[in-house]
Amino acid sequence: MPGINGTVGRRRVLRAAALLPAVLLPAGLMAGGARAAERRTDGGVCALDWTSAQALLALGIVPRGLPELDRYRRAVVEPAVPDGVPDIGARAEPNLELLDRLAPARFVSDGALSAVQGRLERIAPVTVHPPFDTRSDGDGQPGGQLAFAVASLRGLAAGLGVPEAAERAVARLDRTLAAARDRLSGWEPRPLYILSVLDGRRVLIHGRNSLYHDVLDRLGIANAWTGPSGPYGHATVTMDRLAGRPDAGLVNIGSEGGRALEALAALPLFAGLPFLREGRVTILPPILFYGGVPAAERFARLLGEGLAPHHG
């Protein structure tokens, strides 16, 4: 019992404390820094996030691994991931230990993992591929995001030594845009709100500096939302803010939106919103709103099919 005068306990605790650093500093902790140089690689390019995976697949490269594979298949969908590609864990925390075992020749990242870049570099060099220009805050030029995405994809392809793959992907995008324009030739043009219903009152709406805006622009359709939008081109607003353009139609991204919109239409306030009253609502499957060229392509195709379903 140390409590008799306190000193016995104190001395013992001190001694234990002095031991602690010795216990806690195994020699191997700092070792391993030089291993990257001598390691063999199994080759392959590993995507550290969804947009990088999309870009690789669009360039015809099957990634050595990508994060949150199941959710990619549900929320991003395209380009499709072949079977047998390993899941490397959460997007925020791809499993470093697993990445080390996969031993890719290169990583592609959107830059979000900069805090662990140093340790990733010990496994393989990291190529940063930003698909979205987050600095074009609200005043983005028309074509800004799409042009940025195309340039970024070209840069990535050049870095990987497959520049012609980027040209093929861009040509495919142009063909898809042309097909969508063609398909929409019979559709009576009107401005569109592009949004996702979030929680029954609020929507995530895409504005001027969004990727969708540029695709609409290429299709000759006006974006009905001219209000502010954040660095990723979107804003969270309540539904009643969408009363400004009585002639507009509504495009909801994400299959969940149908039920939510029905619930909204039942409320007296929103029943008056022209696009709900007159049923000018289109529901599209999920698309990654900052996903670069492949996402733009998917949006253009799905929008054409959604707005002009009986074409041809």
Partner: peptide, 23 residues
Amino acid sequence: YMVGPTDALAAALLAGLAVAAIP
């Protein structure tokens, strides 16, 4: 996840100092 070797050593050192300060 974000912790690297340097952070870990610094943390261990600080914790050791804290324990040493208890008496």
